[in-house]
Design a protein around this nucleic acid. Structure first.
Lengths: 356, 356
DNA sequence: TTGTACGCGTTATCAG
DNA sequence: CTGATAACGCGTACAA
C-alpha cells in the first residue's frame, strides 16, 4: 500500500496548511501562539497535523527562531560513575524544559576542551556545562566574552569565569582529617588521583594539607598520586606500607582508591580500622558493602546535575547570567575509621606478623 | 573596545564573502568543495574566515543539506556503568566521523521510549542506537517503516527489526552453568534483575534454565529477581539461604548483584567458594578485588559502542542498512567458583555454626 | 573558475 | 484573528 507522495520525505507546515484550509502562518501559530488563534481553527489545525503525522523541522525552526534548544556538556568521560551520574541528572532534568543535551568527552585531555566547546557552539548550543575549573586560556577568553550561559560543576569557585555549582573540595577533605584527628590519629597519608589538570584533586590535596597543618598533624608530604583505578589504590597502599609504616590514617580522595586500599590492606593482613583507618570520597554505592564499610564523603552528584540544569534553564528563560550554587557534602562515618590502637601502627602490625 | 557590529550575533558566509571580495557561493565552496576553487582564492577565503572567526551555522546547513550530523541514543540510564560505558565508547567513536550524539534516557520506563525516539527524529537524528530488544509496538512499527539506520546493543537478536550489535546473553549464562557443573555443582540458584521489559535479563534467566536442563541439574525454579543494586543482591542471598540451603552454586546475572551476594555471604559466615560458589556477569572493574575475586562473564561494552558507531557510520555513508555484529563474551574464572566440598552445602555450613 | 539566484521549513512582521 | 511574505544562513543548479 504505497503512500501518496513518497517524494517529500516529511510533512511540513505547508502540507498541514493546505489540508486544514488555512495559511502556513496559522499553522505555526496554532502550535506556538495558540492564544492568537480561534478555538475552532486551532483544533482543526492540530487535528490535521496529528492526522498527517506532522512534526516541525528542528533545523528550520532553529534557523528562523535562533533557538536550537540544545545545551552542551563537556566532561572528562562518561565511563566514570561520578561524571555519568551528574550528567544523567542534568540531561534528565533539563530535558523537562525542552532542551536536549549533547555530551562531549575530553578523555581527560584538557588540551582538546576548547575544540569541543567550539563544536558545541557551532551546533548552536545555547548553554554549556563543565566540570571543574576552566583552565584552558583560550576557553577562558572565550567564556569571558561570550554571552553564552555556562556553569561548571564539582568545584566551588567563587571567582571562576563562569558560576560554579559545586562543593568545597578542600574543606570536605579537611573535615575528614578533622574526623580522623578526633579519633586520635596523628600520622597521615593521602591517596589522590593525578592532580595535573584536575583542580578537584588539587583542592582535595590542599584540603588534606590544610587540615593537617591546622591540627599540627604529620603527613603533609605523604601524598601518593596515582591514576584513578582500584588497582592503583592498591598500589598506593603498598607504597605507603613500605615508605611510611608509622601511618595510622589513610585518606583517599575517591572511593575507587579507597576500595583498592582496603582490598590491599586485607591482602597484606592489616586490619581496618584497628591497624589503620581508611577513608574515601564520593559515597559510591558500594561504600557500605566494602570490608569494613567505608567512612567517606557524600558528594551530591545528582543534586549538582539538577541544580546546573535549573540554573541554566533559568538563565536561558530570563536571558541573564546563571547564578552559582554552593552545595554541601556530608561526612559519612562508617567502620573503616576508628581510634588507632595504643602504639599501634603499620610497623607494629607488621611486627605482629600479620602481614604477608 | 566595542566590536564593529554587535547587531549581528555571528559571522556568516556573507560577511566572509564581502571581506574576501568573493561571492557567498565561493565561500561555501572553499569549505565544502575545495577542488572547485582556485588555490589562491581558497586560501584567501579560508584566511579571512579564520580572521573573522567564521563558523558555519549548523541549523542552516542542516536545513539546506538535509543532514544534521546528529545521531540519537536511547538507553535506560547513564547512571548504570554498563550503559554509560557503551555510550561513552559510542559517542567518542562516532564523533570521529563528525557526528554528535544526543543521549536520551528512559529511566527504565519503557512506555516512554517511543516518545524519546520521536523527539530525536524531530531533531533530525540520522541514526539511532538502542539497548536490547525493541518491545514497544509503536516503535517497532516506526522502525519497520522508517529508513533511519538503527541498531540495538547488548542483545544478539538475529530476527529483530533492527540489526543487533551484541552478544548471546542466554548462552553466556548457560556456559557459566557449565563451568560450575564441571566443578561438580548440582544445586543451583539464580539471582537476576527484574525481567519485565528487559530482554537481556530474560535471556540470561533462560540461559540459566537451559544450562541446567542440558546437564540435568537442579534449580530451574530457583530464580530470585530483584532490583539492580548491591543491597538487593545481598537480600537475594538472604532469601536463598532461607529458602534453599541445599544450593552450592549461585549464579548472578550482574556483578552488582554478585557483589551483594558475596558481601552477604561474608556477613553470614559462609565461605566462598568452599561453602558456596558465586558468579557474576559484566566483569566490572571491581570484580578482581571482591572477596574472593569474582568469576564472571566479560561483556565487551566498549567494543559494542565502537561497533555500533562503525555500523551506523557505514550505513550513513553508503546509504544502506547497517549490519549487525555478534560479539563474544568471555568466561573469566577467578576464585569465587570452586568445587563444592564433599557433602557440603549451605545446610552443612549452617550446621558447622559458621553462620551468624 | 566564479557569480547569481533559488529553496530548504519555519517563524516573525506587517497588513488586513 | 488571519493571510501574505520576508527573512534566517547555507548549498547548489545554472549561467557566465
Amino acid at each position: 500500500m504505497p503512500r501518496k507522495r513518497q517524494s517529500k520525505s516529511r510533512i511540513n507546515v505547508q502540507d498541514v496548511a493546505e489540508k486544514a484550509g488555512v495559511s502556513v502562518a496559522t499553522v505555526s501559530r496554532a502550535f506556538n501562539l495558540p492564544d492568537m488563534v480561534s478555538e475552532d481553527v486551532r483544533a482543526r489545525v492540530i487535528a490535521t497535523a496529528k492526522r498527517l503525522g506532522y512534526s516541525p523541522n528542528a533545523a528550520a525552526r532553529a534557523l528562523r527562531s535562533r533557538k536550537t534548544h540544545i545545551v552542551g556538556a563537556v566532561i572528562p568521560s562518561l565511563d566514570y560513575a561520578i561524571y555519568a551520574k551528574m550528567v544523567n541528572a542534568f540531561q534528565s532534568s533539563i530535558s523537562q524544559h525542552g532542551y536536549m543535551t549533547i555530551v562531549l568527552t575530553t578523555g581527560f585531555d584538557n588540551r582538546t576542551i576548547f575544540d569541543k566547546v567550539k563544536l558545541l557552539v557551532e551546533r548552536g548550543a545555547e548553554a554549556l556545562v563543565f566540570v571543574g575549573a576552566i583552565e584552558d586560556p583560550a576557553l577562558r577568553r572565550f567564556l569571558k566574552e561570550s554571552p553564552l550561559p555556562a556553569v561548571t560543576t564539582y568545584s566551588h569557585l567563587p571567582n571562576e569565569i563562569v558560576p560554579s555549582i559545586g562543593f568545597d573540595n578542600a574543606e570536605s577533605v579537611a573535615s575528614m582529617v578533622g574526623h580522623l584527628a578526633d579519633l586520635g590519629h596523628k600520622e597521615f597519608a593521602l591517596v589522590s588521583s593525578i592532580a595535573d589538570g584536575n583542580d578537584r584533586q588539587r583542592a582535595r590535596i590542599e584540603g588534606y594539607r590544610t587540615g593537617l597543618r591546622r591540627l599540627k598533624l604529620s603527613g603533609v608530604d605523604r601524598v601518593f598520586s596515582h591514576p584513578y583505578s582500584i588497582e592503583d589504590g592498591a598500589a598506593a597502599m603498598h607504597e605507603i606500607y613500605n615508605a611510611c609504616p608509622q601511618v595510622t590514617a589513610i585518606v583517599c580522595t575517591s572511593d575507587v582508591h579507597a576500595f583498592g586500599v582496603l582490598s590491599e590492606c586485607r591482602r597484606m593482613g592489616l586490619r581496618v580500622p584497628q591497624d589503620v583507618s581508611v577513608t574515601g570520597f564520593d559515597d559510591a554505592e558500594y561504600a557500605t558493602r566494602l570490608e569494613p564499610p567505608l567512612t567517606t564523603v557524600f558528594v551530591p552528584a545528582d543534586e549538582m546535575g539538577v541544580a546546573a540544569a535549573t540554573a541554566l534553564h533559568k538563565a536561558l528563560a530570563k536571558d541573564q547570567k546563571p547564578t552559582g550554587v554552593r552545595l554541601d557534602t556530608k561526612l559519612i562515618v562508617r567502620l573503616s575509621s576508628g581510634s588507632p590502637a595504643k602504639a599501634q601502627d603499620l610497623t607494629s602490625a607488621r611486627r605482629a606478623g600479620r602481614s604477608r
